[in-house]
């Protein structure tokens, strides 16, 4: 589904990714762990198409298409979803308006008709109930004045509503207490399916106790320094990243 080959990328001419290779197949959940500054967020932004990141070498294919040629909204239309580390507050845009705009934009991209507004609102309320989200949430402006937990829950709501093929979760656990973490993890687990791939980017192993990945990779020095199963995450938790960082510096 997603093939990243020898990806080199710079931010303001500073090399951040230096030959990253990664392949995700449908149904798989991959975790990328790494120390601060390893390029984890850069990877998520490059995949979602944020300005300011330049790919200098290598390629990224999503279902065989060159992802780098696509605008952020086209990537979303193709089925890529980034759950933001810091969801943005947008005062003045009601959450329900935002969700409906997003769903209809993706449907339009795929050549599908606009969704019936009443059916959409009904579905939305059901999804909220499942995620333990108060319906009042839908009337409030996007993320505006939300607590850290509410913001992450709102990302999960969007994920559920948009039903992407590939979900990228960037530091989804940051700023969450244990209850919020559990709710968010339940939301993510409910989205696991044989047709969907997930890429979980995280500094800490904690989240991976709740969302158990199929594969764990260590990102260090701009490339994948090691790969393994869930046990690798536990090893990192116990021993830290020092081994990989030292190796990279050497």
């Amino acid at each position: 589904m997603l093939e990243i080959k020898n990806l080199h990328a710079t931010v303001e001419d500073k090399p951040i990714l230096k030959g990253l290779d990664l392949t995700l197949r449908p149904g798989e959940v991959h975790a990328i762990m790494g120390p601060n500054g390893a390029g984890k967020s850069t990877l998520s932004y490059i995949l979602s198409g944020r300005d300011g990141y330049e790919v200098t070498e290598g390629e990224v294919l999503f279902e065989g298409k060159d992802l780098m040629e696509l605008e952020p909204e086209e990537r979303a239309g193709e089925g890529i979803f980034l759950a933001f580390q810091y969801p943005v507050e947008i005062p003045g845009v009601p959450n329900s308006t935002f969700l409906k705009e997003a769903v209809n934009a993706v449907r339009k991209y795929k050549g599908e008709p606009e969704i019936d507004a009443l059916a959409f609102m009904k579905g939305l309320r059901e999804t909220c109930a499942k995620l333990g989200i108060d319906k009042e949430f839908l009337k409030r402006s996007v993320n505006t004045g939300f607590s850290g937990g509410e913001k992450k829950r709102n990302e999960m709501l969007q994920l559920s509503v948009l039903q992407p093929k590939l979900a990228i979760l960037d530091e989804t656990d940051s700023g969450l207490d244990i209850d919020a973490l559990r709710t968010v993890a339940d939301g993510v687990n409910a989205m696991r399916s044989p047709d969907r791939a997930m890429l979980i980017i995280t500094h800490y192993q904690r989240l991976l106790d709740y969302i158990v990945p199929d594969h764990v990779h260590v990102l260090s020095g701009g490339r994948i320094a090691a790969s393994g199963g869930p046990e690798l995450a536990h090893k990192l938790e116990a021993e830290g990243y020092a081994d990989f960082v030292a190796k990279d510096a050497a």
Binding site: E73, A76, I90, G92
Partner: peptide
């Protein structure tokens, strides 16, 4: 905010219009 809206599939022009509307709300 513009990137956030676009990352959810909303085309740039529509995203800008939504933000203008929000600014004036």
């Amino acid at each position: 905010a513009l990137f956030y809206l676009r990352a959810r599939g909303i085309p740039e022009e529509r995203a800008r219009a939504l933000l203008v509307e929000a600014f004036l709300a």
